[in-house]
């Protein structure tokens, strides 16, 4: 992919983000933050690539450290979001 293609994806994704986030109900703004936290840890992709390349030891260790940090976020972020979302209940109609 050339730079312009990547930039196009980025710009369009910003617009998608803009509209999607405005549609989020204010009651769920805290889960929104925790789930965005989890998904921004997709940076683990870069961490894995670094950890799997053995040529430069320092880079590998930085990669492994990043894998640990991103994993905390991924597991923690999704789990805490699921825990919060499970609490949102509707009124029981009697």
């Amino acid at each position: 992919m050339d730079f312009i293609t990547i930039l196009s994806i980025f710009v369009l994704a910003c617009f998608v983000g803009y509209f999607v986030v405005w549609s989020v109900t204010p009651a769920l703004h805290t889960p929104l933050m925790s789930v965005t936290n989890a998904i921004s840890s997709v940076i683990i992709v870069g961490a894995l690539i670094a950890a799997m390349a053995a040529a430069v030891p320092a880079a590998k260790w930085l990669g492994l450290a990043a894998v640990v940090m991103a994993s905390i976020n991924i597991f923690g972020g999704f789990a805490v979001t699921a825990r919060m979302l499970a609490m949102y209940k509707k009124k029981e109609r009697r």
Partner: peptide, 12 residues
Amino acid sequence: AMIITGALVGSS
């Protein structure tokens, strides 16, 4: 995946 996520989280 990283670019889309980054843009989503950034705008959020």
